[in-house]
Amino acid sequence: MSVTVTGTSAPVTDTRGRAVPGLNPFSPGHAARPGAGPLSRRPVRLALGLALPAVLLVTWQVVTSTGLVAPYQLPSPASVWTAAVDLVERGLLGQYVAISTQRVVLGFLIGAALGLAVGSLVGLSRLAGSLLETTLGAVRAVPSLAWVPLLILWMGIGEDSKLTLIAIGAFFPVYTTVVAALRHVDPHLVEAGRAYGLRGARLLGAVQLPAAVPSVVAGLRLALAQSWLFLVAAELIASSMGVGFLLMDSGQNGRVDRAILAILLLALLGKTTDALIGLAEKSLLKRWA
């Protein structure tokens, strides 16, 4: 690193004009400021986050290779890997992951859009609130699995029933957060909006929805997690492909390696989509923080 030392009082800067932390004891970049420490650095946090999975993997390897746990109960990491390669070679793994992801994304989008629309209505209109809130609260109380037989009877075992179930799962977190957020928008801001001539859809678009954005984004994130939950519920019971199907099929055939693979896939897929929405959340919320 090439640094420019210009004098005693001017901050020491690198070639791009940024203050060099270690050489500027009194500049705000100095590491002694409150809240700073190794944990404020991103690579450090990332490494710590990966530490536990690494420990688990090593433990898994040790208990299986020493014969502490029988292979029919817990196969070794290598055999799970082999099962994955085998499924990839048959062209099944890619297909399962793709169809499951597609179901989750479509179901999530449908459910979230409906949740946003109905939530806005209930959150803003007292009439709609009185009409709908009780019923929706009761529907929400129904456990996800309870819908499955009914949806299959109504829609068959095709994509429709699965998407509907996932949409139901995604609907409620969005609906509840939107309702609560819209009801708690600072009344002072709403009044200011009205005083400056905003009404109806304009007021919703300019003041109420933007004010609700942080909680709505949190609701969307919750809804996505819920979508994966409902996906497995849908695929466990009636499907011929997908990660949930892989799980159920392996369970029936005693393929513990594939079952573990399916669970690892769900963890990986869920974490990936959550991380993606987390990135979107971060860039969006920069304006609100």
Binding site: E191, G193, A195, A206, V207, P210, A211, W288
Partner: peptide
């Protein structure tokens, strides 16, 4: 009319 409130009441975003 136009009102300037006791608090600025600006839209934070």
């Amino acid at each position: 009319t136009a009102v300037a409130f006791q608090e600025p009441r600006l839209l934070p975003w």
